Simulated scan of single mutants.
Amino acid sequence: MKAGRLFLAVESGGTRTIASIFSDEGELLGYSIGGPSSHHVVGVARSEETLKAVISDCMASVGLKDYVFEIGCFGMASLDTPKDFEIISEMVKSMNIIKNPIIVGDHVTAYYTVTGGRPGIVVIAGTGSMGYGRVKDGVEARAGGWEWLVSDEGSAYDIARRALVYAVRSYDGLEEKTSLLDKFMEHFKASSFEEFIQKLYEDPRKHRIASLATIVATAAYEGDNVARKILKVAGKELGLLAFSVAKKLRIENDPIMVGCVGGVFRSGPIIFNSFKSFIRKKMPKATIMEPVFSAIEGAMFLCLKEAGIQLSENLMKKIRLQVRKLDH
């Protein structure tokens, strides 16, 4: 392969980090996964450390050392302010591995993953959540994604927080009985309610709380009524994000693509079915895409687009098949 015709794509999130190296023909050559690298979740120092480690592993897997890529795309979670962009730009610059870096929010790479750049809407639901869309003339809109204190409805964090509230209220006799409290106590190895509360507050960081969403999903599929309600509400909230974006762009009655990306959709059909039901009522002409768990494909598409390579259906399909074989 000629120098300058290899590309690097990176997805940085609050749960995990992915790096891929691929050719101008869409051949996936290297693929590495690591832990969280969102600077809002793990801090700037650890974010940089994780990004460098995952990229280094990916490069080593294809025998690249001291290589400088012509183009690399970084899809970053929580890239919301000029300060965020400054932090990430400095981080990428310090790596000295990319001539022309593309740095965008992960909502942009998620959008390209779902639509390939065509008009449409994507909803991202991982540790946090957000809706984003774009139309033909390049006009864009977003909803949500304003972090856990005031936003992130339908996200893993939101699901876990709601479940914790229900579990505690159930213990106090304020809500119906649920298996959630027993499951949380087992997870924390707590022998009493008081010990559970103590251990919960020992580390209330966002990604730790968000990780508890898998417990909620387990309870839901075991038949717990409260857990099922929480997942259904999450699906509706994610549908609301898509509908809000559609109204802002005035495309709620248009035949557009609506897709969803992120680990929350790994939890099974309850959330996605609730999401679909809401979209079908509010946006009857929309085509609802099956969930995708990673936005790395969109980062790859953006690299190729920046390099002047046409994003044909065959090329995008080739990339999608390779990535989804690894990320399922």
Rank of each mutant, 00 (worst) to 15 (best):
G105M: 06
S277M: 02
A234R: 09
K199Q: 02
D203E: 03
V54S: 11
K136S: 15
L6N: 11
E140A: 14
G116T: 01
A227S: 15
Y132F: 15
L315V: 10
S274V: 12
S294N: 12
G120M: 10
V165Q: 03
P101Y: 01
R46D: 15
S192G: 14
Q198R: 14
G117T: 01
T178M: 02
L164V: 12
G43T: 03
Q310F: 10
I88T: 08
L315G: 06
L8T: 10
L181T: 04
A213I: 06
W148C: 11
L240R: 11
R118T: 15
A242T: 09
A60H: 02
E194D: 14
K285Q: 15
L241R: 08
R118G: 15
R228G: 08
V216H: 01
F193E: 09
I121P: 05
H40Q: 05
V92Y: 04
L249S: 06
G144K: 08
L174I: 06
A125L: 09
E11L: 01
R208A: 12
V68N: 07
S37D: 04
V150T: 14
E186W: 12
E147M: 10
I256V: 14
G120T: 10
F301E: 09
M300V: 13
R16N: 07
L240H: 09
I87Q: 10
R169N: 06
A110N: 04
I230K: 04
F196M: 10
K52W: 01
N225M: 13
G4I: 14
L79E: 05
V245Q: 03
S89E: 12
M289P: 06
I288E: 07
F275A: 11
M130H: 11
T113P: 02
E176L: 13
K232W: 00
V114H: 00
S312E: 13
P36T: 05
A60E: 03
S129Y: 09
S23T: 04
R134Y: 01
G26P: 00
Y157W: 09
A227Q: 08
E27M: 07
S211P: 03
Y132I: 10
L326G: 03
K2Q: 08
C260M: 08
V139T: 10
T15A: 09
S294L: 12
D327G: 04
E27K: 07
I209K: 03
S211L: 05
V258C: 00
I271R: 00
E306I: 10
T15C: 07
E140I: 13
E297H: 12
V150K: 13
K99F: 09
V54Y: 14
A3G: 11
F196S: 06
L174V: 08
